[in-house]
């Protein structure tokens, strides 16, 4: 860990906020992608079998 001196809190809070926001974006993107994939798969199966 580099010595951040008197600005340690400033630097670490900037990195912390960035990590939290990017992690939330990636997580939401991943969850939405999984949901859309399974929803489409369900609908495709039901449309092949003729049921809704």
């Amino acid at each position: 860990m580099p010595d951040l001196g008197k600005y340690a809190f400033t630097v670490l809070s900037a990195y912390g906020a960035t990590i939290v926001l990017l992690a939330a974006l990636i997580a939401v993107t991943w969850v939405q992608s999984r949901r859309a994939k399974s929803r489409l798969a369900e609908i495709e199966v039901s449309s092949e079998t003729g049921s809704v």
């Binding site: 993107t29 859309a36 489409l40 449309s47 809704v52």
Partner: peptide, 24 residues
């Protein structure tokens, strides 16, 4: 990377919605 993943999600949702309307 994120835009491509999200665009694929949007395409899937659009197709799901089209299939649902066709079934209805």
């Amino acid at each position: 990377t994120l835009v491509l993943v999200r665009t694929r999600t949007e395409i899937r949702l659009r197709r799901a919605s089209a299939l649902m309307s066709r079934q209805r």
